[in-house]
Design a binder for these strands. Structure first.
Lengths: 137, 137
DNA sequence: GGTTCATATTCCTGAATCGGAATATGCATC
DNA sequence: GATGCATATTCCGATTCAGGAATATGAACC
């Protein structure tokens, strides 16, 4: 019954929105945090939960952790993510998440380049605390 | 975010199996109870949970409560149930549930007649405690 | 009206989970 | 190696939920 952990992960609004965003593009924790307006602890804990249940994978790039859906998701996960994406078109919150993601995508070094390569760190390290603020809430 | 209650309901193996069975045909509590090998309390409580979150509807027929998916499910629910049914084909437990359901379907007065009409009580009332035992565990 | 059957509700206990505060770790720069 | 930043982990307290035992309700039959 590999379905139950998937549903458990999605049974929380924050995690649901995270998976939905990550289904579109890999993101680092601070992007997720500002997109979803989360405290650092909340973001990290929910990501740990998703990692534990293998809904997302994280890799470190320099000082940042980049999260994404697994490279080779199980068939169940793939089907569920697709269903989620279909439903998301009916949901104002999820649609708005995607809209705000699109706004920052040009600024985001990870957008579109999935898991391949380390990526040029447009997420510029050492920029005097001026880390890409994305959406300022 | 009407998706979260749906996922919460499915985030438990018993409820997941209930919804999966009910997606195929309406069933009374005692059928679900024996198909899933549940205590009376467990069956009733999980159904109450599903009812509270509007994933199932119950109607009384004589002494029995017949549960089924809602007559007019939301689009989200319909999509999720379809995704579940697709995934179910990959899952041994869920497939076996359907197999055992098929075995008792001829004996089951509710099979196939959905929500219309009261149905002939093949679930014969007053048959001296010899209620259709279905699967004897 | 009393009995029986099918189902629901209540009360309990134990486990899991969430949110926040504080602290720890790992990488990068100086 | 000290400092700063991004992230993770730990330790609370509050809430939620599952499972079992006992009890309550409601319909049907006598």
């Amino acid at each position: 019954m590999n379905l139950v952990p998937i549903y458990s992960c999605l049974a929380d609004e924050t995690r649901l929105r995270m998976v939905h965003l990550l289904a579109r593009t890999p993101l680092c924790v601070c992007h997720l945090q500002s997109l979803l307006n989360l405290t650092q602890v909340a973001a990290s804990k929910h990501l740990a939960y998703l990692r534990k249940h293998e809904l997302v994978a994280g890799r470190r790039h320099q000082q940042w952790m980049i999260y994404s859906l697994p490279t080779k998701p199980s068939r169940e996960l793939a089907l569920q993510v697709r269903a989620l994406q279909e439903c998301a078109r009916l949901d104002p919150v999820l649609r708005d998440d995607l809209r705000r993601l699109a706004e920052i995508e040009p600024d985001c070094c990870w957008a579109g380049q999935a898991l391949e390569g380390p990526g040029r760190a447009k997420h510029s390290p050492r920029l005097k605390s001026k880390r890409t603020p994305l959406i300022t809430p």
